[in-house]
C-alpha cells in the first residue's frame, strides 16, 4: 500500500514533468539559435491552443484542428523571429527579453479579448473517461498522459537526431557557437535561427491541445508551466533537448515527492521547490547537466 502510493506519486511527478519538459523543449529550440529566453512561449502555445479549439468547435476534425494550431504556432514563431527578434541583432539578450515581455502581455490580453475569461473544455485525442487507463502495479496510467509521454519522447528523439546528425543541425550548432565564422563558411545563420523559432512555436502549439483536456483551456493555463519550463531547461542545460527532458522529469518528480513527504513544504511550496532547484543549479553548474559550457571572457 505504501509502495503503491509511492509509485502513484512517482508517476504523477513524471506526468507533470513531461509537461514541463515539453515546454522546455520549445525554450531550447529558440535558445539554441537566437540565445533568447522566450518568456512568451507559454502564451504563444496558449493562443494556438485557442485557435485549435475554435477550429474544432467549428466542425474541423480534432487532429486537423490541432495541426492547424501547430501550423499557426510555427508561422507565428517565424514571424516573431523575422520581425521582432532578428532586427535586434545578436547578443541583445535584454532587448529580446523585453520584446518577449511585451509579447507576453499583448498575447495574453489579446486572447482574453477574443475568447473571454471563462475556462473552456477541450476534447481529448484519445478516450479520456475516468476508466480509460492501463493499470500497472495498482497505478493508473491514463491514455492521455501516455500520449503526452510518447509524443514527448518521439519529439526529443527527432530533435536530437536533427540537431546531431543533419546538415541543418550542424549549421545550427555552428550558428550558435560562432555566428560570424558560420556565416563565413556559408551557413545562413538567420535562416537557421528562424527555424529554431518555427520549431518552438510548433512544439508549444502541440503541447497545448494535449494538456488542455485536463487543465481546461484558459488564458492563464501556462502561467506556472512556463516557470517550471525555465527551471527544467536550466537544470538540463539551455541548449540540450535531452537535458530539457531530463530536467523536466527531475523537477516534476522531485517537487511531487518533496511536497508529499516533507510536511513543512506541503502543497503550498511546490513551485518554490522547483525554483530552489533552479537557483542551486545556477550557482553550482550554470550550464546545466548537459548544456554546452559557454565561453566566458572574464
Amino acid at each position: 500500500m505504501e509502495f503503491e502510493l509511492f509509485l502513484t506519486r512517482l508517476v504523477q511527478g513524471i506526468n507533470n514533468g513531461a509537461i514541463y519538459a515539453f515546454l522546455a523543449l520549445a525554450l531550447v529550440c529558440t535558445y539554441r539559435g537566437s540565445k533568447a529566453l522566450n518568456l512568451a512561449q507559454g502564451e504563444l502555445a496558449m493562443i494556438c491552443t485557442f485557435v485549435s479549439w475554435s477550429l474544432a468547435a467549428n466542425g474541423v476534425p480534432l487532429p486537423l484542428a490541432i495541426l492547424g494550431g501547430v501550423v499557426v504556432g510555427g508561422l507565428s514563431g517565424a514571424a516573431i523571429e523575422r520581425t521582432l527578434i532578428r532586427p535586434l541583432g545578436r547578443d541583445a539578450h535584454y532587448s529580446v527579453l523585453l520584446v518577449c515581455v511585451g509579447l507576453f502581455l499583448a498575447i495574453n490580453a489579446l486572447a482574453g479579448f477574443i475568447w473571454g475569461g471563462d475556462p473552456q473544455s477541450f476534447p481529448a485525442v484519445v478516450p479520456d473517461a475516468p476508466d480509460d487507463f492501463v493499470p500497472v502495479m495498482g497505478v493508473r496510467l491514463r491514455y492521455q498522459q501516455l500520449v503526452i509521454l510518447v509524443v514527448l519522447l518521439v519529439l526529443v528523439a527527432a530533435l536530437y537526431a536533427v540537431f546531431r546528425y543533419t546538415r541543418f543541425g550542424l549549421s545550427m550548432r555552428a550558428a550558435a557557437s560562432n555566428p560570424d565564422s558560420a556565416s563565413l563558411v556559408g551557413v545562413r545563420v538567420n535562416r537557421v535561427n528562424a527555424w529554431g523559432w518555427v520549431l518552438a512555436g510548433a512544439v508549444g502549439a502541440l503541447l497545448g491541445p494535449l494538456i488542455a483536456p485536463s487543465t481546461t483551456l484558459s488564458t492563464s493555463m501556462f502561467f506556472t508551466f512556463i516557470i517550471y519550463a525555465c527551471a527544467a531547461a536550466t537544470v538540463g542545460g539551455f541548449d540540450s533537448p535531452i537535458g530539457a527532458v531530463i530536467g523536466g522529469l527531475f523537477i516534476g518528480v522531485t517537487e511531487n515527492l518533496v511536497a508529499s513527504y516533507v510536511g513543512f513544504i506541503g502543497d503550498s511550496l511546490k513551485l518554490t521547490v522547483a525554483l530552489v532547484i533552479l537557483l542551486v543549479v545556477l550557482m553550482v553548474k550554470p550550464s546545466g547537466l548537459l548544456g554546452t559550457r559557454e565561453v566566458e571572457r572574464v
Binding site: 506519486r9 504523477q12 506526468n15 507533470n16 509537461i19 485536463s214 487543465t215 481546461t216 484558459s218 492563464s220 493555463m221 501556462f222 502561467f223 506556472t224 508551466f225 511531487n256 511536497a259 508529499s260 506541503g266 502543497d267 503550498s268 511546490k270 513551485l271
Partner: peptide, 12 residues
C-alpha cells in the same frame, strides 16, 4: 491546498 495560479490537475 492548491496555489491560485496552478493550472495542472491536482493529482498529488
Amino acid at each position: 491546498t492548491i496555489e491560485a495560479a496552478d493550472s495542472a490537475p491536482p493529482a498529488a
